[in-house]
Design a binder for these strands. Structure first.
Lengths: 223, 223
DNA sequence: AGTTTTGGTGAAGATTGTGTGAAGATTGTT
DNA sequence: AACAATCTTCACACAATCTTCACCAAAACT
């Protein structure tokens, strides 16, 4: 569960944000001033900070400045002032990660929070045995690199991006080959080599249980 | 140098964004439609995508959807519609990373771009075997100077600036040559000479392990 | 059980990509 | 203009990869 730190001196706003975030299975901690929030941050694991600019003891920008001395924590600014130069300052000068102007709906806040945390999730997705490094065109399986050919890489990417879902041969053909090959059996062969690669990394695994054959339809990757 | 993909059908807007980003030492590639942009994305290393919603051939949201099938590339939406539910959809439902509503100043765009890219910075890497002196157009390898021709310098610079990442031949062609040469094999030859230079400095190294060939894709430098 | 359909497998051949040296073209210098 | 340095292209050899195919195994259906 992700833990969100809310720094906002308007109790009503803070509570409505907390309420909606908690419904979305985040946990929240609220402070109405910068000092306490910074203190809390020093001693508690926080995943993201929602930070109002207008605080009683110091500006939200000052809070952000102090946070940035120590960490890269995602910080989303909340403000009543819809001033573009403020936004530029926050995002570029101070290292904010997002910027929401009041009035806003609670859903927008959740959207921003999710958007910021999305990357972390994919980086370290402990549930999946796979991770993809698109830039390097590499796929890790149990944190070990698979040596795949380009076609194999494309097929496995598709499966990983939509796990637990059947990919028909027809679909794979259309999406992986620019000018589709004539024989659908070709895919069988590629799946075979992918399975062989998996087996090479983890001798004890059963590749047919990881990449499932859906008879008469296609293949699917099980998480 | 970070490479930004701009997808925007209004030429004036696209050019002003590109201009300001290039001043800020980003490199840009512009397309006025989604199809071409997606095609480009398949074959080129892009660090961030600026995506207009109103495109001639498909909605920006559709483009984003297709991008997300394959990658976690940071995507910042640009739109004329200041509609909160659109923003929620983009950020939460489709996985956009940022959202800018028109009209906006170029500086705000830069701020968003910087904000998104801040996290994965790899500027000063003390572990690298390479160091670049841009002003002198010199590259040191194990603290010894490489004697490179101008083209070789440009290629190796690109690789060093984005290590652990595949550079397609297409990408290198476009970014290194002003008027691209016709034959992609030319790159092979330059890579060959760069590898030879490395070998000359460090007899014991394996240049093919340092500059990796990614068959069918391109080359990448391993750190 | 026998038959039919579908998937798995390995191997062969076709296709494509890569490394290499050398030749010719281009550029820069004296 | 002559020369040197550098860049581009090319042809060839070789290696990796893709596709196809024939054959066998497994499952589904009668």
């Amino acid at each position: 569960m992700r833990h969100i730190l809310i720094v906002e001196d308007d109790r009503t706003i803070a509570e409505s944000i907390a309420f909606i975030l908690e419904q979305d299975s985040f946990s929240c901690q609220w402070f109405d001033n910068g000092t306490d929030a910074l203190d809390y941050l020093d001693n508690n694991p926080v995943d993201l900070m929602l930070l109002d600019v207008g605080l009683p003891d110091m500006s939200g920008f000052d809070v952000l400045r102090k946070v940035r001395v120590k960490s890269d924590l995602p910080v989303v600014i909340i403000t009543a002032r819809d001033d573009e130069s403020d936004q530029v300052l926050a995002l570029e000068g101070l290292g904010a990660n997002g910027y929401i102007t009041k009035p806003f709906s609670p859903r927008l806040v959740v959207a921003h929070v999710r958007s910021q945390l999305r990357r972390d999730r994919t980086d370290t997705n402990p549930e999946s045995k796979f991770s993809i490094n698109q830039a390097m065109q590499k796929i890790l399986f149990h944190n070990q690199e698979l040596t795949l050919t380009q076609t194999e890489f494309k097929i496995l990417s598709h499966l990983i991006h939509h796990p637990n879902r059947v990919h028909t041969r027809e679909y794979l053909m259309k999406n992986i080959w620019d000018n589709p090959v004539s024989d659908e059996k070709t895919i069988n062969t590629h799946i075979k080599s992918i399975r062989k690669c998996l087996k090479k990394i983890d001798e004890s695994c059963d590749p047919q249980k990881i990449i499932l054959t859906n008879r008469g339809i296609g293949y699917s990757l099980i998480e």
